[in-house]
């Protein structure tokens, strides 16, 4: 027996999901971070974040079409993590590293938190 593994399939699907997001097609939730708004797909958010997984598996909350995050969350840090969810690329700017890490802790994105820790350690003189 044989099977054909399309090696680009996962990244091709993610690319298309990101295009859908940028065109606001089938996005089903608005995330409010302070006064900034981010449109996204619930399925992508819950596949990447423990916090969103908990929210959208809760039968009372899963149908919400807007979610307000803790006002302490930095919108720039959230924007970088949302971009990561849809692209696999984490932009680690030194000026924003603490905001990104604290937002990743809040969103329960453990592997990203570990990566931020390693980045901070490696840039510590």
């Amino acid at each position: 027996d044989s099977c054909i593994q399309f090696t680009r399939h996962a990244s091709d699907v993610l690319l298309n999901l990101n295009r859908l997001r940028s065109r606001d097609i089938l996005t089903d939730v608005t995330i409010l971070v302070n006064r900034q708004q981010f449109r996204a797909h619930k399925t992508v958010l819950m596949a990447c974040s423990g916090l969103f997984y908990s929210i959208f598996t809760d039968s009372l909350k899963c149908s919400l079409n807007a979610i307000s995050l803790d006002p302490k969350v930095d919108p720039d840090g959230f924007a970088i993590l949302l971009e990561f969810m849809y692209t696999s690329r984490l932009s680690l700017k030194e000026s924003l590293i603490m905001a990104i890490m604290n937002t990743a802790i809040y969103l329960q994105m453990d592997h990203v938190v570990d990566t931020c820790h390693r980045f901070i350690k490696s840039s510590d003189p």
Binding site: D1, C3, I4, F6, T7, R8, D12, L15, R19
Partner: peptide
């Protein structure tokens, strides 16, 4: 897929959704 002979296909797997129509 253990024991299955896997052939790798490196090209695109699906159509590409355009950035904008």
């Amino acid at each position: 897929y253990e024991g299955v002979n896997t052939i790798k296909e490196m090209g695109r797997s699906i159509h590409e959704i355009p950035r904008q129509d």
